[in-house]
């Protein structure tokens, strides 16, 4: 929820309440309030198609309320009739009559002047790792079986484990932060310049559902090692095996899970 948007809306509605606004004003205000909340009130924006759907339902519900008794209908239609027949409101009427078509025209104009967008592709965000063992800095790793060599320290030697996590933190903030961001949410300084966007590690759909071996593979091989189904765009992630040691990569993995409070997916027992 975006409080900067929601709070002013609530204040405005409260003000209407104090002013004892008429039914028509309330209906218009509620409609706009709901629209603004849906459009701007959410931290993650709602797709336009869903907003259209919700506003349709809102319109129907408000119309139902107005129609639900004669008094309500009358108190809503009275100002409208007054607007059309009364002399003193003539200027307002002219503004409305001219304004409505202009609004429609403006809407169509904004709809039509959208920049060209590429069609959406069904992109595999987490393509399957290669089945053959991979070679990193001269060592071979079987991704289906590999485990983080420092993971067991968590129980056997917590203080040593913290050392590795802290080393991972250093590695992260020296290398990864530019894209993956201060809060490991995939919103670093460079994030907006790359496509596909950097992974948000706080999202429960990312590292929590992956094994540590998968992370190791992605970090070591980066964008150049991405299989075809990860396309159609090339990931901008460097192949970190050229810059980091194997231990540093394992440390940064420990840090990511530790920092986000997530647990890696266990390695499956294949023999089952």
């Amino acid at each position: 929820m975006n409080l900067l948007v929601v709070l002013p809306i609530l204040v405005a509605l409260g003000a209407l309440r104090l002013l004892k606004a008429g039914l028509l004003a309330w209906m218009i205000a509620l409609w706009m309030a709901i629209y603004l909340t849906l459009r701007y009130g959410f931290a993650v924006p709602i797709p336009a198609s869903v907003i259209t759907l919700y506003m349709g339902i809102t319109t129907m519900a408000l119309a139902t309320y107005v129609l639900s008794s004669r008094e309500r209908f009358a108190s809503c239609s009275r100002p409208l009739i007054a607007l059309v027949v009364e002399r003193r409101l003539r200027t307002l009427l002219i503004v409305v009559v001219l304004g409505l078509p202009l609004l429609v025209a403006a809407r169509i104009y904004t709809n039509m002047s959208q920049p060209l967008q590429p069609p959406s592709f069904a992109r595999t965000v987490h393509p399957a790792p290669p089945s053959e063992p991979i070679t990193v800095r001269g060592q071979t790793f079987d991704l289906n079986a590999v485990e983080n060599p420092f993971r067991n320290l968590e129980k056997s030697d917590p203080s040593q484990f913290r050392v590795h996590v802290e080393n991972g933190r250093r590695v992260y903030y020296q290398n990864c932060v530019y894209c993956h961001g201060d809060n490991v949410q995939g919103d670093g300084l460079f994030a907006h310049g790359v496509n596909p966007i950097p992974t948000n590690f706080r999202d429960s759909g990312t590292i929590a559902m992956l094994q540590e071996g998968f992370l190791f593979w992605r970090i070591a091989k980066g964008g150049p090692g991405m299989p075809g189904e990860g396309g159609p765009w090339e990931s901008a992630m460097p192949a970190w095996e050229n810059f980091l040691t194997v231990d540093e990569m394992w440390d940064v993995i420990l840090f990511l899970y530790d920092h986000t409070g997530q647990r890696p997916r266990e390695v499956e027992e294949h023999a089952k």
């Binding site: 595999t124 965000v125 987490h126 393509p127 399957a128 790792p129 089945s131 759909g205 559902m209 023999a271």
Partner: peptide, 25 residues
């Protein structure tokens, strides 16, 4: 699905190429 997890109704096919050999001894 390919590459999804969570409470799925049917097995995910991601990685089936390697898993297939290990399912039935």
């Amino acid at each position: 699905t390919i590459g999804q997890s969570g409470s799925l109704r049917f097995p995910d096919l991601d990685g089936i190429g390697t898993r297939a050999a290990t399912r039935i001894p």
